[in-house]
Design a binder for these strands. Sequence first.
DNA 1: GTTATTTCTTGTTTTGGGTCAATGTATACC
DNA 2: GGTATACATTGACCCAAAACAAGAAATAAC
Lengths: 192, 192
Amino acid sequence: MLFESLFQNIEEKVTITESDKTLLRSFFRVKKLRKRQYLLQEGELCKDIAFVVRGALKSYTLDDKGNEHVSLFGLEGWWISDFRSFICGETALLNIDAIEETHVLLLSRAHYDTMLDQMPLMERYFRILYQNSLVTKDRRLISSHTYTAEEKYQELLRQYPFIIQRIPQHLIASYLGLTTETISRIKKKQLI
Amino acid sequence: MLFESLFQNIEEKVTITESDKTLLRSFFRVKKLRKRQYLLQEGELCKDIAFVVRGALKSYTLDDKGNEHVSLFGLEGWWISDFRSFICGETALLNIDAIEETHVLLLSRAHYDTMLDQMPLMERYFRILYQNSLVTKDRRLISSHTYTAEEKYQELLRQYPFIIQRIPQHLIASYLGLTTETISRIKKKQLI
DNA sequence: GTTATTTCTTGTTTTGGGTCAATGTATACC
DNA sequence: GGTATACATTGACCCAAAACAAGAAATAAC
């Protein structure tokens, strides 16, 4: 049950057999988080990447004034981690915590490496996953440099309409590099 | 000769044999660009990803006012393309042209796919390459949302000190989402 | 159902960095 | 060399969005 959404996600990119699934199961462990619970805190080592089975998380940095800057949301079917910390072994700059009650599948660095060695199709899966993420991140960077506040919000609506239903506005604002007041004003303007 | 820097780049991530090299050579073709020459123009299909052997390129969008927004530089040993177009087969939003006289190795989509099918180690190479690119892009997005103009410039200096020697200031400004005037003022301030 | 907490709105003020314009300085090209 | 073109600096002014402040709504907690 728990693994179904992971398998589904994998099968969108590569073909896996039942025995692959059995092997895959052995690499992950389940973790449940309640609302506001940390998955990772700044300064720790990010030991796992997390596949979100249900719920929602956010990853964010805190600046010197204590302002939150959301870098990513993790919803069902998405991966979330401090990738820099996980890959390079440096301490995390990101905090990750649950916006809602959340279930994740955790994959440790050791299991990640083993998995990639034993399962060439997972090498391909992650190559494709990262390839797609790069496309997304490129678009975000362009948006961040080229668009006005209003255009950024529009683009988000177009791209992830469901996110508005799900995630509090001030977090969306932060994700876009804006303030909640600005979003509020944009929304007001649209109605008139 | 031309392939040495590509092989070197690959060997930083995976181990390749002489016969791998021979096979690899067959997938690429060489292209020389003079200064200002396009590698890709907005609206075209991005048919190749390019490995830069020498020289420097920039990829950028143009907004409605005709302003250039640099999204990436391609220097020796880096890959450059409109990845979204290359992967998804949509028309390119990016322009890519040479800042200097440049030599690139081009890899077409068909060759890319064949290569990945025939050479598991290249699957791994690209997985690692993308993995690292994601780390970089994450950092850029954080920087773009969290830092002041001055901090953005400082961070670039720290990360890629050589780039200042190489790339005109107005392009660096654009890459950071700033204007050349702003950079000029930051530099002035540092001297005092 | 009352109270607390979180989230959102609206008004006012402030500011970082953009825009515009003019001038200076390299670098490239005949 | 001279002159064209690209690139950088400086100053004056402006504006989009941030910051600040105060309430209003919505949700959650008891």
